[in-house]
Design a protein around this nucleic acid. Structure first.
Length: 800
RNA sequence: GCCCGAAUGGCGGAACAGGUAGACGCAAGGGACUUAAAAUCCCUCGGUGGCAACACCGUGCCGGUUCGAUUCCGGCUUCGGGCACCA
């Protein structure tokens, strides 16, 4: 009996699979498209944290092969973008060089993991043949008015020297480097994702995605119902539009606030207040959003004008204050200090009137100590007194509409997507700026616009792309009027290539379309998508947006790209997040020589439920290594006997356990299930085990530990691959036993076990139990006897 | 601040649908085999009491529903995550 020689066995099977892939005769089988979020080769190597998702998708893919599906399980490289460029700068290498090196390493690692990626379908987003189509999608968006230029204050990361999309500047902090973002006025390309806000929200309901991710996208889109109210400015022709979710509180609106960036601030400010207002506006503009949010005290200044409350006709002083955001709603608000915490704080600080218009019994007649934001009945609201909040929303809405001073509206937090980047390493935006024609899209025949190969690609401080310096590339005739014109020098963001890549895999060499209609029909949408939670509102929102756009222009026939999404948990190491950037973490390259790839695969699953974040434990992998050795001793040269009833039942139980746990994606208990069954079989090994049990074990194990499974399968005398088999089924009838053991309780406490025939009647079972518990039940009054067939008996007694 | 999720031995975790809490593994301790080591095998391993059979307590805390609660309900505490002046 020898120790399991994982080195040679794994080498042998990887070579076999290379020569003869595990998927055969796939023509008539149903399709299954199982996809990993493709990695960006920004660091030199993958760590064991990345493996967790790749192992999961590999297990599912191999399982589907055994279940008779034709599986597409491809891999590629999201190789453009800031991370890859920063990494290249750090290494003092050209991005194309460092990316190619990183891809080589990562691909080797993925192959050593025994994954069934089909490398004939490899994608690289930096390949001009690929990004031709990334540019093509942009061109279509431009034609449909979804891509537009705008100069506006944008999130700017001074460290990365690049503008950030809203999704990349959550909390005012750069998503990549975590430094505070500032505002910078720049002309940028924007994508009108807001046009899709409602559909992006509604279609979440169709998706088999984790609730958490759906909720994050819902919150990000941030739909809220309310009213837009038009306030007359006294003595002026201009009026101020304000969005509110609480039109019911209109009679409590005692002042108004404009955002500092609001154009009416300059227009309306009374001359004697001008200096003070200008100073305030300038100060607000110079501060980062992080600073502005950090303010505990409300700030603001009166602009010397008044608006009129359309119901009460009271004069409402107009202020400017930076707690009002210019890019949400209308950038102006009606302030109801009685029923809004922020307005209350502002009113208290500046001595503005606070009027209560919503009341509960408890609140009537008391001066408000804080804003009351709850439900109640209208007071101090004239003809609307006595209405509930909900009734008043409708009634006041109708009143305003009749007056022509308001309408019901919906607002979203979702903003348009800042799409251009001031960096070298990205897809050139296929636009030419012509003095006569304006921005002109590059004709499809001229795509791809190839990224020029230049030496000096470092970012600039000015917000200008490094490409702007390459005159011979920048200067080009206008595609429309043929006059001298200039190319757009900004590039696309990291997300451009990854927003549609899943469409390309089935048809990677297509030069006439992003993919043929047949390939899309045969394979899309993705059935199962595996990746980390960090993309909940970035990549996943952008990919949904792209897909919906491509659906609208007839390029695809489905509206949602990913039917099912699985969020793989993160693996920490010594309490810290592993990173490929700093090389911190555990490399599979160090684990594989000692334990082998099957052991690492099993440990990735065994470590914790796959969706949970967990901690890498260096000694934990010993357990699965021991298991593989135990299994090998069991299956290497077993004493084969004819199947006994016990063995048959055991086999069916094994199939049931592994299958149901796998279906529930409880991969940690799948592994423990293999351990349990192997332990049980070990105790029977001396007596002998039947061939079918061992072969079934090999097939069940194949998706999880494919190398040892193939080896065992072959040692049993089989000449075909274990993956040419069918996933075993179990017969519930075979799991039944003649007798069953029941738990006995007295007053809910465990008091013993009793074995009865499986088909025994209730009365018989209770009588047996009563006899078995005689010493406890004698002399006591049995108030109730509970019998749950197959499970438990409980006597409720009085006395004792 | 608002929203969401979680809490089980020294550790990772298990418990189908309300029915034996702690599967499986790690670590630890003890033992067998061995000249020795590696490997393997066996035993112990939530707490308290007891020589023991056994008894009582025990799934973050308090309460409720139930014959029976880790599981359901109400109220807290702590930790993690998301958003954050979104009108």
């Amino acid at each position: 009996m020898s120790r399991y020689d994982f080195k040679n066995v794994e080498k042998k099977w990887r070579k076999r699979w290379e020569e003869k892939p595990v998927q055969q005769n796939t023509k008539d089988k149903p399709k299954y498209y199982c996809l990993d979020m493709f990695p960006y080769p920004s660091g030199s190597a993958l760590h064991v944290g990345h493996w967790r998702g790749y192992v999961l998708s590999d297990v599912l893919s191999r399982h589907k092969v055994l279940q008779g599906f034709h599986v597409l399980h491809p891999m590629g490289w999201d190789a453009f973008g800031l991370a890859a460029e920063n990494n290249a700068i750090k290494q003092k290498k050209h991005p194309s060089v460092s990316v190619a090196e990183n891809i080589t390493t990562m691909k080797r690692q993925l192959m050593e993991m025994g994954t069934i990626y089909d490398w004939d379908f490899e994608i690289n987003t930096t390949d001009p043949a690929y990004y031709k189509w990334t540019q093509w999608v942009f061109a279509r968006m431009f034609e449909h008015g979804l891509a537009y230029e705008q100069e506006m204050p944008l999130n700017w990361c001074p460290t990365c020297k690049v503008v950030l999309a809203n999704e990349e500047a959550v909390g005012g902090v750069c998503e990549r480097c975590k430094n505070p973002a500032t505002k910078k006025n720049l002309r940028q390309w924007m994508l009108k994702i807001t046009r899709y806000g409602e559909r992006l929200l509604n279609d979440l309901g169709k998706l088999d995605w984790p609730e958490k991710v759906k909720k994050m996208q819902t919150d990000w889109i941030g739909k809220s119902h309310g009213a837009e109210i038009d306030f007359t400015v006294l003595g002026e022709s201009d009026s101020i539009k304000a969005f509110t979710t609480r039109p019911d509180t209109l009679c409590g609106a005692t002042f108004m606030v404009l955002a500092p960036e609001h154009p009416l601030v300059e227009k309306l400010t009374a001359p004697e207040y001008k200096d003070e207002v200008d100073a305030y506006v300038q100060r607000a503009a110079s501060r980062s959003s992080v600073d502005r949010m950090a303010d505990k005290e409300k700030t603001g200044v009166f602009i010397g004008r008044y608006a009129e409350n359309p119901i009460t006709k009271e004069k409402m002083p107009i202020w400017v204050a930076d707690y009002v955001l210019y890019d949400y709603g209308t950038g102006a608000i009606m302030c109801v200090p009685g029923h809004d915490e922020r307005d209350f704080a502002f009113a208290e600080k500046f001595g503005l009137p606070i009027v209560q218009v919503i009341s509960t019994c408890a609140l009537v007649g008391h001066k408000l100590k804080e804003a009351y934001t709850g439900d109640g009945i209208l007071v101090n609201s004239g003809e609307f007194n006595g209405l509930t909040v909900d009734e008043a929303k409708k009634a006041i809405g109708a009143f305003l509409e009749k007056l022509g001073r308001g309408k019901a509206t919906v607002n979203y937090k979702l903003r348009d997507w800042v799409f251009s980047r001031q960096r070298y390493w990205g897809e050139p935006i296929p636009i030419v700026h012509c003095e006569a024609c304006g921005p002109v899209v590059v004709p499809d025949a001229e795509l791809p616009i190839v990224l020029p190969d230049i030496k000096s690609y470092e970012p600039t401080d000015t917000g200008e792309s490094p490409l702007a310096k390459i005159e011979e590339w920048v200067n080009t005739p206008c595609p429309k009027c043929k006059q001298p014109a200039k190319r757009e020098t900004n590039t696309m963001p990291q997300w451009a290539g990854s927003s549609w890549y899943f469409l390309r895999y089935p048809d990677i060499n297509n030069n006439d379309a992003l993919a043929s209609p047949e390939a899309l029909r045969d394979w899309l949408p993705v059935d199962y998508y595996v990746g980390g939670i960090e993309h909940a509102v970035l990549h996943l929102l952008y990919a949904r947006f792209y897909t919906k756009f491509l659906y609208d222009i007839g390029a695809v026939t489905f509206e949602e790209p990913f039917t099912t999404l699985f969020n793989i948990g993160m693996i920490n190491y010594k309490g810290k997040k592993m990173s490929k950037g700093e090389g911190y973490g555990v490399s599979p390259d160090n684990v594989l020589p000692k334990h082998g790839c099957d052991a690492l695969r099993l440990y990735e699953m065994f470590i914790a439920p796959p969706e949970i974040d967990c901690e890498w434990d260096d000694s934990g992998i010993e357990g699965v290594s021991r298991f593989l050795n135990k299994l090998w001793r069991l299956a290497e040269s077993p004493k084969l006997i004819a199947p006994t009833n016990g063995l048959i039942r055991l086999r069916h139980k094994m199939v049931r356990d592994i299958s149901t746990r796998l279906e529930n994606l409880s991969l940690n208990t799948v592994v423990s299930g293999f351990m349990e069954h192997t332990n049980t079989l070990q105790t029977l090994a001396a007596e002998g085990i039947d061939r079918e049990t061992i072969e079934t074990l090999a097939v069940l194990l194949a998706p999880f530990a494919p190398h040892i499974a193939e080896e065992i399968w072959e040692r049993m005398g089989n000449t075909d691959s274990v993956f040419a088999q069918k996933w075993p089924e179990y017969d519930p009838e075979m799991l039944k036993t003649d007798t069953i053991e029941l738990v006995m309780q007295v007053n809910g406490k465990l008091r013993g076990h009793v074995t009865v025939p499986a088909n025994a009647e209730k009365d018989f079972v209770l009588e047996e139990a009563r006899k078995a518990l005689a010493s406890r039940l004698d002399g006591a009054e049995i108030i109730k006897s509970v019998y749950v067939p197959g499970r438990i008996i409980n006597f409720v007694i009085k006395g004792q």
